[in-house]
């Protein structure tokens, strides 16, 4: 599903986030990208959904070569993705249900399907009663859940989640991870970028890629994640 070869990213202010990064995520895999704040997790996710270009290297997602010169079909890539970004990007002038319906409308889903899908995902994420409520009336945690629901309502084949549970309580984090697992069991590829090692430890069966010092390393076990954490601190 995802292939990255010798990918480097240096910002115009000459800060190199990572260099010569190689990464492969197979279809249907559930992967955590772990690293401290500033390690490049968000940049990596943004490169994967085409919001940023790498400085060098090759990036292929779902057989689409993002680094192809003149590549313009970012929308094709994003249509099959569910993107969860830390800045939510919710529409404040619409209610919860409308925000979710909007994601389906703009990607050409038939109207009769939209209502059903919206109700289903809101029920799963525990916001069924808030469907008609304004986004502004929700707490930050609830807004994050709406963002997650919006990404999932499209039934994507790849979920890219950047700190999806950063402001959720333990109970809600567990619920979100259950939903992710449900999608994963249906064959969805999931990439979760997080600095929450507890979250990773609660899901020991998933592969962990650790970003540190501009390099990526594979953590074989949760113990190794702990040791990486120790060495960084």
């Amino acid at each position: 599903m995802i292939q990255m070869f010798s990918v480097s990213k240096t910002y115009p202010n000459q800060i190199t986030v990572f260099s010569d990064l190689d990464l492969e995520v197979t279809t249907g895999e559930f992967v955590f990208i772990e690293g401290r704040s500033g390690s490049g997790k968000s940049t990596l996710i943004r490169i994967l959904f085409g919001a940023e270009k790498p400085t060098s290297g090759e990036v292929i997602v779902n057989r689409i070569r993002l680094t192809q010169p003149g590549f313009k079909k970012v929308y094709q890539l994003r249509k099959m993705m569910g993107i969860i970004s830390p800045d939510f990007k919710l529409l404040r002038d619409r209610n919860v249900g409308e925000n979710l319906a909007f994601a389906l409308e703009v990607t050409g889903h038939p109207l009769k399907e939209i209502k059903e899908k919206v109700s289903e995902i809101l029920g799963k994420i525990g916001l069924a009663e808030r469907e008609k409520d304004s986004i502004l009336s929700l707490s930050a945690g609830e807004q994050q859940r709406v963002t997650i629901a919006r990404a999932l309502v499209k039934d994507p084949s790849l979920i890219l989640a950047d700190e999806p549970t950063s402001i959720l309580d333990d109970e809600m984090t567990a619920r979100v991870m259950e939903i992710f697992t449900e999608f994963h069991q249906r064959g969805t590829t999931i990439v979760v970028a997080t600095q929450d090692n507890q979250l990773i430890q609660h899901h020991p069966h998933h592969r962990v890629i650790s970003l540190s010092g501009g390099k990526a390393g594979e953590a074989e076990s949760n113990e190794e994640v702990k040791s990486i954490e120790c060495s960084l601190s």
């Binding site: 970012v74 929308y75 990007k89 529409l91 909007f102 703009v106």
Partner: peptide, 17 residues
């Protein structure tokens, strides 16, 4: 802007926007 960014994030076709 907010709406356009959201549409782009969700992969709306450029013509749709």
């Amino acid at each position: 802007k907010e709406e356009i960014e959201a549409m782009q994030m969700m992969g709306a076709h450029p013509a749709f926007i």
